[in-house]
Amino acid sequence: MNAVDLTAVTKTYGRTRALDAVDLSFDRGVTGLLGPNGAGKTTLLRIVATSIAADRGDVRLLGRDPHGSHAELTEIRRELGYLPQELGYPGDMTAFGFVEYVAVLKEWNDRGRRHREVRRVLELVGLGDLATKRVSKLSGGQRRRVALAQALLGDPRILVLDEPTTGLDPTQRADLRRTLSALGGRCAVLLSTHQTEDVAALCERVVVLAGGTVRFDGTVTDLVATAAGRVWLCDDEPGTDALVSWRTGTGRHHVVGGTPPPGAVPTDPTLEDAYLLMLGADAHAVRAPA
């Protein structure tokens, strides 16, 4: 049994088809979800987090049906940690108070054990010293970490993180990667991001989503391999048939896709190159040519 099983899952908002017959399964390990704005990443994560229901298709979480009985849904939610893409914070709450509130909603009823757990997750995201500070007085990145802390309460078996690294400084991102890869050994971590470096550094598996459909599903190495021989470095401005190109800091042009420009030297593709090629025409939504 997989932790998450989605079969032909479809979700529409009015006329927008946010997810179109998506089949995906996840189990232990860290899976990264890449895709341009509006690809359907948040929609997919919200379905897995039981925040919204799919219109059609079958959703199985820990072998249970979230549309089934209330008891079944509650069982799933007990094993779930969720970091929404956007989260407001009641201004007068402290970091500790915020996480404690969520802990009560997650049925940590014993005061002593709850306080220890809240402290544990705050330490885990490096906020042990700021626990008594009001959330409204924290920086954007610190606030994001408070939100992350609540998702980690109680070591969930499914951890759904919608853009967890947004707004974090490099040190914090490195810390988060360490925390998440440790968690990945025990539970299914599903995260969306716009940062290909996060995926390369952290995820065993990568899923590329665009226009509500799965474009790629496999290991990071396999995705990079799809771009072999299609990326070059050259001195001159490339022709117009390149998918994307930009002038790097060294003054040379990094060219992805198309026909190799004269004098171009093939170079090792990065995950970002492969991702852009995978998206094809949609790539311009991700990185406009410089």
């Binding site: 987090a49 039981t50 929404p84 989260l87 969520v102 049925e107």
Partner: peptide, 15 residues
């Protein structure tokens, strides 16, 4: 309707 914690309230086992 836009309760800042709404998303978390909805997905928590408390209900």
């Amino acid at each position: 309707q836009q309760d800042p914690l709404e998303t978390l309230v909805v997905t928590a086992p408390y209900g």
